[in-house]
């Protein structure tokens, strides 16, 4: 399945891209996606799917837009 992944801040440099379309096996969880991207502290980032929060054990789906950002809490 195809999933659009967008990264914010320092994660762009950690992972190596700002936005890309990834091909993932069906049933891939958010946690597995992070691991595949080399993000070694999954509890540290904020991850949303189509603008809503998603748990690390939830599966992402075809056409989802996944946003991964540092854990900011506002200026």
């Amino acid at each position: 399945m195809k999933v659009c992944v967008k990264l914010i801040g320092g994660l762009v440099h950690t992972v190596g891209f700002a936005e890309d379309e990834l091909h993932l096996p069906a049933g891939t969880t958010a946690g597995a996606l992070l691991a595949g991207l080399g993000i070694d502290r999954p509890g540290w980032v904020i991850i949303t799917r189509n603008g809503q929060g998603i748990a690390l054990d939830e599966a992402v789906g075809e056409g989802d837009r996944i946003l991964i950002s540092p854990p900011f809490s506002g200026g």
Binding site: I8, G9, L11, H13, P70
Partner: peptide, 20 residues
């Protein structure tokens, strides 16, 4: 380690756009 200062607070802008 976090690379926060690379964008500072402006990293919030695409997040706000993404979550409406």
């Amino acid at each position: 380690k976090a690379g926060w200062s690379l964008q500072g607070t402006t990293g919030v802008l695409p997040w706000c756009n993404e979550v409406a």
